[in-house]
Design a protein around this nucleic acid. Structure first.
Lengths: 152, 152
DNA sequence: TAAATCCCGAGTAAATTACTCCGAATTATC
DNA sequence: GATAATTCGGAGTAATTTACTCGGGATTTA
């Protein structure tokens, strides 16, 4: 039950894009260096994010990536789901019938546990779908303000 | 971001023990057959649950496993954490300083994302620590009642 | 003594993860 | 038009994790 590097890096990178939202396209090299993430790996992550419509790319020199929407309209949930698939999947919960049926929970009629997984997924989705990149930037400012007040 | 079979099976098995709480020790074979889970694999899962004090074992013929506490005092969070380790770990969040430091988020002073992971873990913990095995059994009864009302 | 169980540790095939490597296409700038 | 900076795409791969299997020993009941 952990977040993979893809998801973790993806969110970090998206925050970086949010910070530079006004400055035109950001090249991967910059993110890679600043966040200390392999550039090749980032390329793969960004390919996904682009396919999912979360970022826009500009090719060629002076090119790079930009958020496809305002930071207040990009949610952590979108990023993570794009990169990791549905959150908290327990196979018996998969909507698309892709579940590995001969391996898991065949008693679908009366599965006592299913409710728990459903609740859990709802909670996680709900939380992450209510945190925008802008929120994260704002928290940071608040924290800094608080730090400052404390010092004074 | 998914629950492993260990966690999933573990919860299913514990629900089974809750259902049979009054009937004395339940042998693995019964659970294995009823829940369609490999018995050897269950042994490993139960070894962990026992070490964590969630179940008690009785050896020998007519032996088996019993919940160590009343179903209303065993929480899903305990089961899953026992089997899967801390929920939603992002390495930069690990309390024990075990984090793979040269790989991830070295900017610990000012990590914008950390807050999100922390909130998320709190939420998940909080949810799962408030669902007891008894709750799950009760829900099932309620569902059945509702079904019944609907039919009537 | 025999059968039923838990207990323990080693081994392993398959899947997943976290990348690397290569080269092509596109664009800006000189 | 050449060069450099970038995105784009796919293939490959080493390490790790997962989901088990296998074998045998210890304990208890009948």
């Amino acid at each position: 039950m952990r977040l993979s590097a893809k998801g973790e890096y993806g969110v970090r990178a998206m925050v970086y894009l949010a910070l530079n939202y006004e400055n035109g396209p950001v090249p991967l090299r910059a993110i890679s260096q600043s966040e200390n993430i392999s550039q090749h790996f980032l390329e793969q992550i960004f390919a996904i994010l682009r396919r999912e419509g979360l970022i826009k790319s500009t090719r060629g020199a002076k090119g790079g990536y930009t958020l496809a929407h305002l930071p207040q309209h990009v949610y952590v949930g979108d990023i993570i789901r794009a990169l990791e698939g549905p959150l908290f999947p327990v196979d018996c919960l998969s909507e698309d019938g892709q579940a590995d049926k001969n391996r898991r929970c065949n008693k679908t009629e009366d599965c006592l546990v299913r409710n728990v997984w459903e609740k859990l997924r709802e909670h996680i989705d709900n939380l992450l779908d209510n945190i925008s990149l802008q929120d994260m930037l704002d928290w940071s400012i608040e924290n800094k303000k608080a730090e400052y007040e404390k010092v004074r």
